[in-house]
Computed example of a mutant assay.
Amino acid sequence: MTRYAIDEQRGALIAAWATGDGDTAGTVAALPPATPADQRYAVARTLTDLSAALWHAYTHPASAAEDDLEDGSEGWRRQAERDAFAGVPEAIVEPNLPENGMIVQSYIVVEEAAHRLGRALHAIGDTELAKSVAAEVHIEIAAVEQAELGDLSGRARQAVVLSRADASPVQVAEADRLLRENPFGPDELFTAVDPTAAAVAAAHWLHAAASVAAEVTGQSVTAAVLEADGITGLPVATLSIVLDLLEDGASPHEAVTELIRDAMAVAEGEVPNPVGLAEAVAEVQQAVQRVAPDDEDALDHLLAEVRTTPLDPARPALDLLEDLLVGIDGCADLFAEYADDGGVDDEPGDDGAADGGDRGDAADDAANAREEARVAAVRDEFMAAVRAWAAANAERLV
């Protein structure tokens, strides 16, 4: 979301938002010099609240509510928030004002946020400031609508740091294109693509990488990831959940959005799967009672491993994307372990060591070059196989 602040030195209202590479800022309007401090900050605060409400409608679309939008349902409520965008300009210009000690308030967050901003501007009573703020809100709404269409240029780029409960097909296609160029994940996945969509594409490419590693090791994809964890520490809990879902027939979109939605629910104070959580706790307690019934430390340690979500609730989409890319890299390491090592027989310093350091250094350099070439060749072989698998199963991303 965009955050608004007061530049006290210049007496200006400014806006700042994330880009994936860092934050950027711009001036919204100059403030009337005589405006009291509390009124200036009320405008900045209510603008920030409105932006948060607008972007919340983006991250929590009705399409991700998994109901039929009937009256009173979660999807119905989310759709009401999105529909309220159309009334924001009018609410800013003609907000609900107190009458006879009472004020009309809306249960729709977007609508009420717009009225509160309108009341803050009304208190100042400056026409030029009101026009500038209205223009700023128009830009912010356009950015959200642009992001919904999968275009993350300009102000809409702030979506790259948000976790969304659904994924734009346009963004998934762009992430897939980037991963086709570099299956290990280029920087653009974090700076130019919605992270949920990037994670959907990355789940597909993880499945490809794990399948290639599984074939060369003669194991299941989940077992291959577990073995890869022994080479390079991996977030096996997350990777195993994703791969199990994919192997059971779920699409990358289904697997990823399910994990992210659960983590978003946890961030909002909910327990998405209370029955599963209770069963996990019971299993841990039973295990401790079997081996160490009086060992409270062991119980505390095991219970600490029980989580409502394997993802960071504060940034679930980005956390999942990072885990998936680490998993792809881990599969490459496992593939290399099983590939023909073509190892270098020369021990550093052996060749020519008796005749002086020059020949020994040259031999070392040659050995290192051969090893680097071998590693590069194995990595290329792995990437070619992963690209072939991903292409052969590309319909799963549609």
Rank of each mutant, 00 (worst) to 15 (best):
R119C: 12
A267L: 10
M102T: 13
A86C: 02
D194Q: 15
V200I: 05
G125M: 13
E337H: 08
G22M: 02
A143P: 00
N96C: 12
A15E: 04
Q146H: 06
E74N: 10
A114R: 07
V266I: 05
F184A: 06
Y338A: 02
L311P: 03
G330H: 04
A44Y: 02
D126L: 03
D244K: 04
T196L: 07
D187L: 11
I6E: 12
A165N: 07
T309F: 11
Y4N: 02
A377T: 04
A292E: 08
R177L: 01
E247Q: 13
P274L: 00
A44S: 07
P293E: 15
S163Y: 04
T232C: 04
S220G: 02
G20R: 05
I92S: 00
I241H: 03
D365G: 04
T232M: 08
Q158Y: 08
E81K: 07
R78M: 11
P183T: 12
R164L: 10
D67Q: 07
G357S: 08
D358I: 09
P169T: 03
V93L: 13
G349N: 05
A12H: 01
Q286R: 13
V212T: 01
A57S: 14
V43Q: 09
G276D: 08
P186I: 03
D295E: 11
W76V: 08
L318I: 15
D340S: 07
H56S: 05
L50M: 05
A203F: 09
Q146A: 15
E111K: 14
N393H: 15
T27R: 11
W389E: 05
A16Q: 00
L97W: 07
D329N: 11
V281C: 11
L31P: 05
F335I: 06
M383G: 03
A197K: 07
E111T: 15
L162E: 02
H301T: 12
A367D: 12
E258C: 00
E395R: 11
D68G: 05
V291T: 15
D294F: 10
Y4C: 11
S251L: 13
D365Y: 06
R3F: 14
A18K: 11
E322W: 09
A135E: 13
S163H: 01
V378L: 14
I124R: 13
D346L: 13
T27D: 07
A25H: 05
R45C: 01
V137T: 10
S163I: 03
A52L: 05
A135H: 10
L152H: 15
A255L: 10
I141V: 15
S251P: 14
E371P: 01
R374A: 06
E395W: 04
A199Q: 07
N273H: 15
R379P: 06
A15H: 06
V43N: 04
A250P: 04
A57Q: 08
A25D: 11
E188Q: 15
A317P: 09
V193G: 08
G249Y: 02
E99D: 08
L239E: 03
A29I: 07
S153Y: 01
F85M: 01
F85L: 12
V133S: 09
Q286N: 12
V216G: 02
A167K: 00
R10G: 15
G75P: 13
T222P: 09
L243H: 02
E140S: 06
L129R: 09
E136F: 05
A237G: 10
S251Q: 06
I328T: 14
